[in-house]
Amino acid sequence: MAEQNETKTNRLVVRLATAAIAMFGFGFALVPLYDVFCDITGLNGKNFGQGPAEVTSVDRSRTVKVQFVTVNPADMPWDFRPTVRSMRVHPGEDKNTTFYAKNSTTEWMVAQAVPSVTPSEAAPFLHKVNCFCFDRQPLDAGTDTEMPLLFVVDPELPEHISTITLSYALYDLTDDQKVTQLTLDNDKGRTSL
């Protein structure tokens, strides 16, 4: 009786401990789950319709105001702003615009723009065909550049949305880039041996 109880207890403990470990894993699984969830709902305004939309016709009966804003996060010294603050577009038409960036420091730097859209409901309907935010942007000390963005507003955009704001936060990844560069160089060194 007592022995039987002990095996029963051991089995239960193993199960409960496994459950605890599984929940630890679940905590981490929430990260990709959250991304999937955001993809579907546009929850954080981060996940856009990527690439060219399958747009057949331009809806000329409707205009949507698209605004561009920029944010420099803490300790990002570049000048960064949209060249055009807002434009009116018909859903379905390709539109080009640019963003101006200047590295006003005395050192070579690399930056990465992170987009965000509001209202978040509109995020899945803003297709970026080509965007400077797809790549890291290096700039030499004291130089400037105009970075292109080609986008389409999906004609499926819900009727009640009349303004879409696209925001870019420009992050300094110089240190990160140096590290990557260094590892790449090391790798090259190794293969050549």
Binding site: D75, S104, D172, D175
Partner: peptide, 15 residues
């Protein structure tokens, strides 16, 4: 002061 210091709480004050 103009450009701040990366990795610290020192902000870029040029704006």
């Amino acid at each position: 002061i103009v450009n701040g210091k990366t990795g610290t709480a020192m902000q870029a004050f040029k704006e």
